[in-house]
Design a protein around this nucleic acid. Structure first.
Lengths: 197, 197
DNA sequence: CCGATGACAGATTTCAATATCTGTCAGTCC
DNA sequence: GGACTGACAGATATTGAAATCTGTCATCGG
Protein backbone atom coordinates (compact mmCIF):
# COMPACT_ATOMS: atom_id res chain seq x y z
CA UNK A 1 0.00 0.00 0.00
CA UNK A 2 2.30 2.83 -1.20
CA UNK A 3 1.51 6.26 0.23
CA UNK A 4 0.15 8.66 -2.39
CA UNK A 5 1.59 11.83 -0.95
CA UNK A 6 0.72 14.38 -3.59
CA UNK A 7 -3.10 14.48 -3.52
CA UNK A 8 -4.74 16.85 -1.03
CA UNK A 9 -6.02 15.38 2.20
CA UNK A 10 -9.81 15.68 2.26
CA UNK A 11 -12.44 14.20 4.61
CA UNK A 12 -13.68 12.15 1.68
CA UNK A 13 -10.27 10.62 1.04
CA UNK A 14 -9.87 9.89 4.74
CA UNK A 15 -13.25 8.16 4.84
CA UNK A 16 -12.42 5.98 1.84
CA UNK A 17 -9.11 4.93 3.34
CA UNK A 18 -10.64 4.36 6.77
CA UNK A 19 -13.22 2.10 5.18
CA UNK A 20 -10.46 0.07 3.53
CA UNK A 21 -8.49 -0.13 6.77
CA UNK A 22 -11.57 -1.17 8.75
CA UNK A 23 -12.34 -3.78 6.12
CA UNK A 24 -8.82 -5.17 6.32
CA UNK A 25 -8.18 -5.08 10.08
CA UNK A 26 -11.67 -4.95 11.60
CA UNK A 27 -12.95 -2.52 14.22
CA UNK A 28 -10.93 -3.94 17.11
CA UNK A 29 -7.54 -3.88 15.38
CA UNK A 30 -7.74 -0.85 13.10
CA UNK A 31 -6.07 2.26 14.55
CA UNK A 32 -5.92 5.89 13.54
CA UNK A 33 -2.20 5.38 13.02
CA UNK A 34 -2.99 2.66 10.47
CA UNK A 35 -5.29 5.02 8.60
CA UNK A 36 -2.67 7.77 8.60
CA UNK A 37 0.00 5.36 7.39
CA UNK A 38 -2.23 4.19 4.52
CA UNK A 39 -2.76 7.83 3.58
CA UNK A 40 0.94 8.65 3.86
CA UNK A 41 0.41 11.37 6.49
CA UNK A 42 0.89 11.67 10.23
CA UNK A 43 -2.01 10.72 12.46
CA UNK A 44 -2.17 14.32 13.68
CA UNK A 45 -3.39 15.31 10.23
CA UNK A 46 -6.33 12.94 10.44
CA UNK A 47 -7.41 14.64 13.67
CA UNK A 48 -7.51 17.93 11.78
CA UNK A 49 -10.54 16.61 9.85
CA UNK A 50 -12.20 14.33 12.39
CA UNK A 51 -12.30 15.11 16.11
CA UNK A 52 -11.94 11.51 17.32
CA UNK A 53 -11.60 7.94 16.30
CA UNK A 54 -15.24 7.40 17.24
CA UNK A 55 -16.33 10.19 14.87
CA UNK A 56 -14.36 8.57 12.07
CA UNK A 57 -15.92 5.19 12.73
CA UNK A 58 -19.36 6.75 12.80
CA UNK A 59 -18.85 8.64 9.56
CA UNK A 60 -17.72 5.49 7.75
CA UNK A 61 -20.61 3.46 9.12
CA UNK A 62 -23.07 6.21 8.30
CA UNK A 63 -22.02 6.15 4.63
CA UNK A 64 -22.12 2.39 4.57
CA UNK A 65 -25.59 2.23 6.10
CA UNK A 66 -26.76 5.04 3.83
CA UNK A 67 -26.22 2.89 0.77
CA UNK A 68 -28.72 0.32 2.07
CA UNK A 69 -31.25 2.93 3.14
CA UNK A 70 -31.17 4.31 -0.41
CA UNK A 71 -32.08 0.97 -1.92
CA UNK A 72 -34.90 0.44 0.58
CA UNK A 73 -36.17 3.94 -0.08
CA UNK A 74 -36.69 2.97 -3.71
CA UNK A 75 -38.98 0.16 -2.65
CA UNK A 76 -40.84 2.35 -0.18
CA UNK A 77 -41.36 5.04 -2.83
CA UNK A 78 -42.39 2.68 -5.63
CA UNK A 79 -45.72 3.87 -7.00
CA UNK A 80 -48.87 1.85 -7.46
CA UNK A 81 -47.92 -1.25 -5.50
CA UNK A 82 -50.45 -2.38 -2.86
CA UNK A 83 -49.20 -1.62 0.63
CA UNK A 84 -49.26 -5.21 1.97
CA UNK A 85 -47.12 -6.48 -0.91
CA UNK A 86 -44.84 -3.47 -0.62
CA UNK A 87 -44.45 -4.09 3.10
CA UNK A 88 -43.44 -7.68 2.50
CA UNK A 89 -41.03 -6.70 -0.25
CA UNK A 90 -39.48 -4.03 1.94
CA UNK A 91 -39.00 -6.38 4.90
CA UNK A 92 -37.48 -9.01 2.66
CA UNK A 93 -35.12 -6.44 1.13
CA UNK A 94 -34.07 -5.32 4.61
CA UNK A 95 -33.37 -8.89 5.67
CA UNK A 96 -31.44 -9.64 2.48
CA UNK A 97 -29.42 -6.44 2.77
CA UNK A 98 -28.41 -7.13 6.37
CA UNK A 99 -27.69 -10.74 5.66
CA UNK A 100 -25.47 -9.94 2.71
CA UNK A 101 -23.67 -7.20 4.59
CA UNK A 102 -22.97 -9.65 7.42
CA UNK A 103 -21.69 -12.25 4.98
CA UNK A 104 -19.82 -10.18 2.42
CA UNK A 105 -18.47 -7.39 4.58
CA UNK A 106 -17.98 -8.95 8.00
CA UNK A 107 -15.52 -6.37 9.32
CA UNK A 108 -17.69 -3.37 8.53
CA UNK A 109 -20.65 -5.28 9.86
CA UNK A 110 -18.74 -5.79 13.08
CA UNK A 111 -18.05 -2.06 13.15
CA UNK A 112 -21.78 -1.47 12.95
CA UNK A 113 -22.18 -3.84 15.88
CA UNK A 114 -19.64 -1.84 17.89
CA UNK A 115 -21.58 1.37 17.29
CA UNK A 116 -24.77 -0.38 18.35
CA UNK A 117 -23.15 -1.42 21.62
CA UNK A 118 -21.93 2.14 22.15
CA UNK A 119 -25.43 3.55 21.66
CA UNK A 120 -24.08 5.76 18.93
CA UNK A 121 -26.43 8.36 17.56
CA UNK A 122 -25.60 7.25 14.02
CA UNK A 123 -27.19 3.86 14.51
CA UNK A 124 -30.18 5.37 16.26
CA UNK A 125 -30.68 7.73 13.33
CA UNK A 126 -30.34 4.84 10.89
CA UNK A 127 -32.99 2.83 12.72
CA UNK A 128 -35.30 5.84 12.85
CA UNK A 129 -34.96 6.27 9.10
CA UNK A 130 -35.94 2.67 8.59
CA UNK A 131 -38.92 2.95 10.91
CA UNK A 132 -39.95 6.15 9.13
CA UNK A 133 -39.93 4.31 5.79
CA UNK A 134 -42.07 1.58 7.31
CA UNK A 135 -44.40 4.28 8.61
CA UNK A 136 -44.81 5.71 5.13
CA UNK A 137 -45.68 2.33 3.65
CA UNK A 138 -48.18 1.62 6.42
CA UNK A 139 -49.62 5.13 6.15
CA UNK A 140 -50.22 4.58 2.44
CA UNK A 141 -51.95 1.30 3.17
CA UNK A 142 -54.19 2.89 5.78
CA UNK A 143 -55.09 5.69 3.34
CA UNK A 144 -55.86 3.14 0.63
CA UNK A 145 -57.91 1.01 3.03
CA UNK A 146 -55.77 -2.11 2.64
CA UNK A 147 -54.17 -1.83 6.09
CA UNK A 148 -55.49 -0.87 9.53
CA UNK A 149 -53.53 0.91 12.25
CA UNK A 150 -54.75 3.24 14.97
CA UNK A 151 -51.32 4.80 15.49
CA UNK A 152 -49.18 4.53 12.36
CA UNK A 153 -45.78 5.39 13.90
CA UNK A 154 -46.40 2.95 16.75
CA UNK A 155 -47.41 0.27 14.26
CA UNK A 156 -44.25 0.90 12.26
CA UNK A 157 -42.16 0.51 15.38
CA UNK A 158 -44.02 -2.66 16.31
CA UNK A 159 -43.37 -4.17 12.88
CA UNK A 160 -39.71 -3.26 13.19
CA UNK A 161 -39.46 -4.76 16.68
CA UNK A 162 -41.31 -7.93 15.73
CA UNK A 163 -38.94 -8.57 12.82
CA UNK A 164 -35.82 -7.76 14.85
CA UNK A 165 -34.54 -11.31 14.64
CA UNK A 166 -34.04 -10.73 10.90
CA UNK A 167 -32.25 -7.41 10.94
CA UNK A 168 -30.71 -6.94 14.38
CA UNK A 169 -26.97 -7.67 14.10
CA UNK A 170 -27.08 -9.46 17.45
CA UNK A 171 -28.72 -12.33 15.58
CA UNK A 172 -26.31 -12.35 12.63
CA UNK A 173 -24.93 -15.77 13.57
CA UNK A 174 -28.37 -17.33 13.13
CA UNK A 175 -28.80 -15.95 9.61
CA UNK A 176 -26.79 -18.88 8.31
CA UNK A 177 -29.29 -21.41 9.61
CA UNK A 178 -31.05 -23.34 6.83
CA UNK A 179 -34.43 -22.67 8.46
CA UNK A 180 -34.02 -18.93 8.80
CA UNK A 181 -35.85 -18.05 5.58
CA UNK A 182 -38.87 -20.10 6.59
CA UNK A 183 -38.86 -18.40 9.98
CA UNK A 184 -38.63 -15.01 8.34
CA UNK A 185 -41.57 -15.77 6.09
CA UNK A 186 -43.68 -17.00 8.99
CA UNK A 187 -43.04 -13.88 11.06
CA UNK A 188 -43.56 -11.58 8.10
CA UNK A 189 -46.83 -13.26 7.18
CA UNK A 190 -48.03 -13.02 10.78
CA UNK A 191 -47.15 -9.35 11.05
CA UNK A 192 -48.64 -8.36 7.70
CA UNK A 193 -51.80 -10.26 8.56
CA UNK A 194 -51.96 -8.36 11.83
CA UNK A 195 -52.00 -5.07 9.93
CA UNK A 196 -54.55 -6.04 7.29
CA UNK A 197 -57.78 -4.08 7.30
CA UNK B 1 -20.60 -19.95 55.63
CA UNK B 2 -19.56 -22.79 58.04
CA UNK B 3 -19.11 -26.18 56.40
CA UNK B 4 -21.75 -28.66 57.50
CA UNK B 5 -19.65 -31.77 57.35
CA UNK B 6 -22.02 -34.36 58.76
CA UNK B 7 -24.89 -34.46 56.25
CA UNK B 8 -24.53 -36.83 53.28
CA UNK B 9 -23.44 -35.31 49.99
CA UNK B 10 -26.30 -35.56 47.49
CA UNK B 11 -26.79 -34.08 44.01
CA UNK B 12 -29.63 -32.03 45.44
CA UNK B 13 -27.44 -30.51 48.14
CA UNK B 14 -24.73 -29.77 45.58
CA UNK B 15 -27.25 -28.04 43.34
CA UNK B 16 -28.54 -25.85 46.14
CA UNK B 17 -25.07 -24.81 47.17
CA UNK B 18 -24.02 -24.22 43.56
CA UNK B 19 -27.01 -21.95 43.10
CA UNK B 20 -25.97 -19.93 46.15
CA UNK B 21 -22.37 -19.74 44.96
CA UNK B 22 -23.43 -18.68 41.47
CA UNK B 23 -25.73 -16.07 42.95
CA UNK B 24 -22.91 -14.70 45.09
CA UNK B 25 -19.99 -14.79 42.66
CA UNK B 26 -21.65 -14.89 39.22
CA UNK B 27 -20.94 -17.34 36.40
CA UNK B 28 -17.53 -15.91 35.50
CA UNK B 29 -16.06 -16.00 39.03
CA UNK B 30 -17.70 -19.03 40.63
CA UNK B 31 -15.49 -22.14 40.61
CA UNK B 32 -16.04 -25.77 41.46
CA UNK B 33 -13.54 -25.28 44.28
CA UNK B 34 -15.79 -22.55 45.69
CA UNK B 35 -18.75 -24.91 45.64
CA UNK B 36 -16.76 -27.66 47.32
CA UNK B 37 -15.50 -25.27 49.98
CA UNK B 38 -19.06 -24.08 50.72
CA UNK B 39 -20.08 -27.73 51.10
CA UNK B 40 -17.08 -28.57 53.28
CA UNK B 41 -15.80 -31.27 50.91
CA UNK B 42 -13.02 -31.59 48.38
CA UNK B 43 -13.75 -30.62 44.79
CA UNK B 44 -13.08 -34.18 43.72
CA UNK B 45 -16.24 -35.21 45.58
CA UNK B 46 -18.34 -32.83 43.54
CA UNK B 47 -17.08 -34.53 40.38
CA UNK B 48 -18.40 -37.83 41.71
CA UNK B 49 -21.95 -36.47 41.23
CA UNK B 50 -21.55 -34.19 38.23
CA UNK B 51 -19.21 -34.98 35.34
CA UNK B 52 -18.16 -31.38 34.66
CA UNK B 53 -18.57 -27.80 35.68
CA UNK B 54 -20.74 -27.25 32.60
CA UNK B 55 -23.09 -30.03 33.69
CA UNK B 56 -23.40 -28.43 37.11
CA UNK B 57 -24.17 -25.04 35.59
CA UNK B 58 -26.74 -26.60 33.31
CA UNK B 59 -28.45 -28.50 36.10
CA UNK B 60 -28.75 -25.35 38.21
CA UNK B 61 -30.07 -23.31 35.29
CA UNK B 62 -32.47 -26.06 34.34
CA UNK B 63 -34.03 -26.00 37.81
CA UNK B 64 -34.15 -22.23 37.78
CA UNK B 65 -35.81 -22.07 34.37
CA UNK B 66 -38.17 -24.87 35.35
CA UNK B 67 -39.75 -22.71 38.05
CA UNK B 68 -40.80 -20.16 35.44
CA UNK B 69 -42.03 -22.74 33.00
CA UNK B 70 -44.25 -24.14 35.75
CA UNK B 71 -45.94 -20.80 36.34
CA UNK B 72 -46.48 -20.27 32.62
CA UNK B 73 -47.87 -23.77 32.31
CA UNK B 74 -50.61 -22.82 34.76
CA UNK B 75 -51.69 -20.00 32.48
CA UNK B 76 -51.52 -22.18 29.40
CA UNK B 77 -53.59 -24.88 31.10
CA UNK B 78 -56.23 -22.52 32.57
CA UNK B 79 -59.63 -23.71 31.48
CA UNK B 80 -62.34 -21.70 29.82
CA UNK B 81 -60.39 -18.60 28.94
CA UNK B 82 -60.63 -17.50 25.29
CA UNK B 83 -57.42 -18.24 23.42
CA UNK B 84 -56.63 -14.66 22.35
CA UNK B 85 -56.84 -13.38 25.93
CA UNK B 86 -54.89 -16.38 27.18
CA UNK B 87 -52.22 -15.77 24.56
CA UNK B 88 -51.83 -12.17 25.67
CA UNK B 89 -51.74 -13.14 29.32
CA UNK B 90 -49.13 -15.81 28.65
CA UNK B 91 -46.89 -13.46 26.67
CA UNK B 92 -47.16 -10.84 29.37
CA UNK B 93 -46.33 -13.39 32.06
CA UNK B 94 -43.29 -14.51 30.07
CA UNK B 95 -42.07 -10.94 29.70
CA UNK B 96 -42.63 -10.18 33.38
CA UNK B 97 -40.90 -13.37 34.46
CA UNK B 98 -37.81 -12.70 32.35
CA UNK B 99 -37.73 -9.07 33.37
CA UNK B 100 -37.90 -9.89 37.05
CA UNK B 101 -35.33 -12.61 36.76
CA UNK B 102 -32.98 -10.18 35.04
CA UNK B 103 -33.56 -7.56 37.72
CA UNK B 104 -33.80 -9.64 40.90
CA UNK B 105 -31.39 -12.44 40.14
CA UNK B 106 -28.80 -10.88 37.85
CA UNK B 107 -26.08 -13.46 38.44
CA UNK B 108 -28.24 -16.47 37.64
CA UNK B 109 -29.64 -14.56 34.71
CA UNK B 110 -26.08 -14.05 33.49
CA UNK B 111 -25.52 -17.79 33.89
CA UNK B 112 -28.49 -18.37 31.63
CA UNK B 113 -26.90 -16.00 29.11
CA UNK B 114 -23.67 -18.00 29.25
CA UNK B 115 -25.54 -21.22 28.44
CA UNK B 116 -27.28 -19.46 25.56
CA UNK B 117 -23.92 -18.42 24.12
CA UNK B 118 -22.66 -22.00 24.52
CA UNK B 119 -25.65 -23.39 22.60
CA UNK B 120 -26.39 -25.59 25.57
CA UNK B 121 -29.08 -28.19 25.09
CA UNK B 122 -30.73 -27.09 28.32
CA UNK B 123 -31.62 -23.69 26.91
CA UNK B 124 -32.77 -25.18 23.65
CA UNK B 125 -35.04 -27.56 25.56
CA UNK B 126 -36.37 -24.67 27.65
CA UNK B 127 -37.22 -22.66 24.52
CA UNK B 128 -38.89 -25.66 22.97
CA UNK B 129 -41.03 -26.10 26.06
CA UNK B 130 -42.13 -22.52 25.83
CA UNK B 131 -42.92 -22.78 22.12
CA UNK B 132 -44.85 -25.99 22.83
CA UNK B 133 -46.98 -24.15 25.41
CA UNK B 134 -47.66 -21.43 22.86
CA UNK B 135 -48.60 -24.11 20.37
CA UNK B 136 -51.14 -25.56 22.79
CA UNK B 137 -52.78 -22.18 23.35
CA UNK B 138 -52.92 -21.48 19.62
CA UNK B 139 -54.19 -24.99 18.91
CA UNK B 140 -57.04 -24.43 21.37
CA UNK B 141 -57.89 -21.16 19.68
CA UNK B 142 -57.94 -22.77 16.26
CA UNK B 143 -60.18 -25.56 17.56
CA UNK B 144 -62.54 -23.02 19.13
CA UNK B 145 -62.56 -20.90 15.98
CA UNK B 146 -61.18 -17.77 17.66
CA UNK B 147 -57.75 -18.06 16.04
CA UNK B 148 -56.56 -19.01 12.57
CA UNK B 149 -53.31 -20.76 11.72
CA UNK B 150 -52.50 -23.10 8.85
CA UNK B 151 -49.52 -24.65 10.66
CA UNK B 152 -49.88 -24.38 14.43
CA UNK B 153 -46.29 -25.24 15.44
CA UNK B 154 -44.95 -22.80 12.85
CA UNK B 155 -47.33 -20.12 14.11
CA UNK B 156 -46.18 -20.74 17.67
CA UNK B 157 -42.57 -20.36 16.63
CA UNK B 158 -43.41 -17.18 14.70
CA UNK B 159 -45.12 -15.66 17.76
CA UNK B 160 -42.11 -16.58 19.87
CA UNK B 161 -39.68 -15.07 17.35
CA UNK B 162 -41.73 -11.92 16.88
CA UNK B 163 -41.77 -11.25 20.63
CA UNK B 164 -38.07 -12.08 21.08
CA UNK B 165 -37.24 -8.52 22.06
CA UNK B 166 -39.23 -9.11 25.24
CA UNK B 167 -37.83 -12.42 26.36
CA UNK B 168 -34.44 -12.89 24.72
CA UNK B 169 -31.75 -12.15 27.34
CA UNK B 170 -29.69 -10.36 24.69
CA UNK B 171 -32.17 -7.51 25.07
CA UNK B 172 -32.20 -7.48 28.88
CA UNK B 173 -30.54 -4.06 29.04
CA UNK B 174 -33.47 -2.50 27.16
CA UNK B 175 -36.04 -3.88 29.58
CA UNK B 176 -35.35 -0.95 31.87
CA UNK B 177 -36.42 1.57 29.26
CA UNK B 178 -39.56 3.50 30.25
CA UNK B 179 -41.12 2.84 26.83
CA UNK B 180 -40.58 -0.91 26.85
CA UNK B 181 -44.04 -1.78 28.15
CA UNK B 182 -45.74 0.27 25.43
CA UNK B 183 -43.54 -1.45 22.85
CA UNK B 184 -44.41 -4.83 24.26
CA UNK B 185 -48.11 -4.08 24.10
CA UNK B 186 -47.88 -2.85 20.52
CA UNK B 187 -46.05 -5.96 19.35
CA UNK B 188 -48.35 -8.28 21.29
CA UNK B 189 -51.47 -6.60 19.90
CA UNK B 190 -50.06 -6.85 16.37
CA UNK B 191 -49.20 -10.51 16.73
CA UNK B 192 -52.49 -11.51 18.34
CA UNK B 193 -54.38 -9.60 15.65
CA UNK B 194 -52.37 -11.50 13.07
CA UNK B 195 -53.62 -14.79 14.50
CA UNK B 196 -57.28 -13.85 14.89
CA UNK B 197 -59.74 -15.82 12.80
C1' DC C 1 -15.58 -52.51 49.62
C1' DC C 2 -17.09 -47.62 48.74
C1' DG C 3 -17.33 -42.86 49.20
C1' DA C 4 -14.05 -39.42 49.73
C1' DT C 5 -9.48 -37.28 49.26
C1' DG C 6 -5.66 -34.53 47.57
C1' DA C 7 -1.71 -34.61 44.37
C1' DC C 8 -1.24 -33.93 39.65
C1' DA C 9 -1.16 -32.43 34.36
C1' DG C 10 -2.90 -29.48 31.23
C1' DA C 11 -5.95 -25.56 30.39
C1' DT C 12 -7.39 -21.12 31.75
C1' DT C 13 -7.10 -16.82 34.29
C1' DT C 14 -4.73 -13.10 36.57
C1' DC C 15 -1.51 -9.58 37.00
C1' DA C 16 2.03 -6.41 36.27
C1' DA C 17 5.38 -4.77 33.10
C1' DT C 18 5.77 -3.18 28.54
C1' DA C 19 4.27 -1.45 24.25
C1' DT C 20 1.00 0.84 21.51
C1' DC C 21 -2.60 4.01 20.78
C1' DT C 22 -5.50 8.32 21.25
C1' DG C 23 -5.84 13.00 21.31
C1' DT C 24 -3.21 17.61 22.03
C1' DC C 25 -0.36 21.22 20.72
C1' DA C 26 3.84 23.96 20.10
C1' DG C 27 6.49 24.35 16.38
C1' DT C 28 7.94 23.52 11.20
C1' DC C 29 7.63 24.09 6.38
C1' DC C 30 5.84 25.59 2.16
C1' DG D 1 -0.60 31.83 7.39
C1' DG D 2 -2.54 27.59 7.30
C1' DA D 3 -1.81 22.65 6.49
C1' DC D 4 1.08 19.41 8.48
C1' DT D 5 4.34 17.22 11.77
C1' DG D 6 6.06 14.68 15.61
C1' DA D 7 6.91 14.66 20.59
C1' DC D 8 4.20 14.04 24.49
C1' DA D 9 0.82 12.59 28.54
C1' DG D 10 -2.58 9.66 29.80
C1' DA D 11 -5.43 5.75 28.46
C1' DT D 12 -5.69 1.19 26.49
C1' DA D 13 -3.94 -3.13 24.76
C1' DT D 14 -0.49 -6.85 24.61
C1' DT D 15 2.44 -10.09 26.58
C1' DG D 16 4.46 -13.61 29.25
C1' DA D 17 5.18 -15.45 33.80
C1' DA D 18 2.83 -16.94 37.89
C1' DA D 19 -1.34 -18.43 40.03
C1' DT D 20 -5.55 -20.77 39.88
C1' DC D 21 -8.78 -23.90 38.05
C1' DT D 22 -10.68 -28.19 35.83
C1' DG D 23 -10.92 -32.88 35.53
C1' DT D 24 -8.46 -37.52 36.64
C1' DC D 25 -7.04 -41.08 39.45
C1' DA D 26 -4.17 -43.80 42.70
C1' DT D 27 -4.75 -44.09 47.40
C1' DC D 28 -6.85 -43.69 52.04
C1' DG D 29 -10.04 -44.57 55.93
C1' DG D 30 -14.23 -46.38 57.78
Amino acid sequence: MPPAATEPLTPERILETTEEVLRRYGPTKATVVDVARALGVSHGSVYRHFPSKAALREAVTDRWLGRTVGRLEEIAAAPAQPAPAKLEAWLEALFEAKRHKAGDDPELFATYGVLLAENSGVVEAHLEQLVAQLGRIIGEGVAAGSLAAADVPAAARAVFDATGRFHDPQYAAEWRSPTIVAEFEAVTALVVRGLRA
